[in-house]
Amino acid sequence: MTRPLALLALLVPVFTAAQPVAEAPVALDGTHQVDLVSEVNGHPYRLYIAPPEGYAADDTTRYPVLYILDGRRTFPAAVTARAFQDIYDGLDEVILVGIGNGEQTFDAWFSHRWRDYTPSANAATDSVVAVQFSQDPETVVSGGGPDFLRVLREEILPLVDSAYRTTGDRGLTGQSLGGLFAAYVLFEAPGLFQRVGINSPSLWWSDGETFATEVAFAEAHAALPAHVFLSVGSEEGRSMVPPMERLAEALRSRGYDGLTMDAVVFADETHTSVVPAMMSRTLRVLYGRSE
């Protein structure tokens, strides 16, 4: 019995002697960030950028870009999913750009996305949600989607195109309110993004106004040149699953020229647990290695 105790006596100083090191920011390898203040709406934005592994300063190759909403939270998942799929060359090379506003708290993130990702103002819903999520009612203000689309078109896209060797091949993906915004952009600015991920979209917004938008679009357009991926978790409930399936069926039934579409319901996933799965599948569907 004495030898184990003697061994323990040797080990204890090893643990107690350990001292905390100076705190340093954690960063994903091969990524960086760019901050800007929009002249369109006056709000700050932070871009989280991850060029593909093959990106080199002395190369002339150009790359497509995937813009990822809710960047601070979803960008790391996208970078990790790409790294794993790249082990077997599963994806085409693509520049990943997460879009956030540098938010460090839930409240700041919530008000930012509530403003930017809603295509119309709905004061009644603002009030209900402010109470539900214990938010300051003055910060829960919807309807900034049209301005945020201008931020994308006039500021963020040109900034990335000027700083990186990009092609005109752009993708946009979002989840929840971000999925609502991606659907809005698909019909409001056709052609701006050629690949669109509409994940767990909040199509309940303003009594399902997205469906009226799609009907009006179909009446005026025969073409919708895009590769669209729709997804939702099976455990997200009646307000989320049937509307996603309804939008998928509407897109299938139109026969839009130039449209290709994939849709999936992730089994046993909730509105939050589905995020890593939808991010990985979005990359695989929209950027799977072409032969």
Rank of each mutant, 00 (worst) to 15 (best):
L247F: 14
V14R: 04
T166P: 04
V228M: 01
G54E: 08
L230V: 03
H227G: 00
T31S: 09
H221E: 01
A189I: 04
W109A: 07
E93G: 12
V215Q: 08
F193W: 02
L69E: 04
Q19N: 08
A108N: 15
R62E: 11
P146W: 07
G255K: 02
V97R: 02
A183V: 03
P242S: 06
N41V: 13
T74Q: 09
Y48R: 09
E154F: 08
L96Y: 04
L203E: 10
L36K: 13
P225S: 00
E39W: 10
G144D: 06
P13C: 02
V264Y: 10
L172M: 03
E236H: 03
P137S: 08
L36V: 07
A163L: 12
S200H: 12
V131S: 07
M244W: 12
A27S: 05
E39S: 10
A9S: 12
G171I: 00
R170W: 06
V34A: 13
D147C: 15
V40H: 11
S200K: 03
W114N: 10
G42T: 07
R115Y: 15
V241W: 05
L172Q: 02
A81D: 02
A50W: 10
R115A: 15
R289G: 03
L230A: 02
W204V: 06
V264E: 08
L47M: 14
D29Q: 15
Y45L: 11
F148G: 06
A263E: 11
V140Q: 05
E93V: 12
L7G: 00
T118N: 05
F110G: 04
M278V: 08
A18V: 08
D86A: 11
S273R: 10
F84G: 09
S176R: 04
L157I: 11
Y256N: 00
A189D: 15
L192N: 01
